[in-house]
């Protein structure tokens, strides 16, 4: 998936069409968090700068902020996570968090591709 990029904080971005990107978290993050009990979703229409917190994923004992790696406006959210937070683990197709219309797709250049991300994971203990 050449259109999928990763961050060091374990967010994943998949470029859907043109300037809309799907945001989620990686399998590594899902595993680290354990059983998810709640996902706090952003509001459609909300604008975020690169690096802003746009969602929170909660397990029983932790709450992790999810930061957007790209700036833009939220155009769609995954309502399913309201009732079924654990769906986040199925796949990015099922368990995406939000879709964002990017204002600057050059921000993607700073992110890792799958190979680079996997290499990065090797460096973590």
């Amino acid at each position: 998936m050449a259109d999928t990029k990763y961050t060091k904080d374990h967010e994943v971005v998949h470029i859907e069409d043109g300037n809309v990107a799907v945001l989620g978290i990686t399998a590594y993050a899902q595993d680290a968090l354990g059983d998810l009990v709640f996902v706090e979703l952003p509001e459609v229409g909300a604008s975020f700068e690169k690096g802003d917190e746009f969602a929170v994923v909660e397990s029983v004992k932790t709450a992790a902020e999810v930061y957007t790696p790209v700036s833009g406006e939220i155009v769609e959210i995954n309502d399913r996570l309201n009732d079924e937070p654990e769906a986040i683990k199925i796949s990015l197709e099922e368990g995406w968090i939000a879709k964002i219309r990017m204002t600057d797709d050059s921000e993607l250049d700073a992110l890792m591709d799958e190979a680079a991300y996997n290499e990065y994971l090797e460096t973590l203990d």
Binding site: D9, D31, A32, L33, G34, D35, V60, A64
Partner: peptide, 16 residues
């Protein structure tokens, strides 16, 4: 995601 992620693996709730 927060930088404290590695801590979470330990604090992870016990599976049932």
């Amino acid at each position: 995601m927060g930088a404290e992620l590695h801590m979470m693996q330990d604090a992870k709730d016990n599976q049932m």
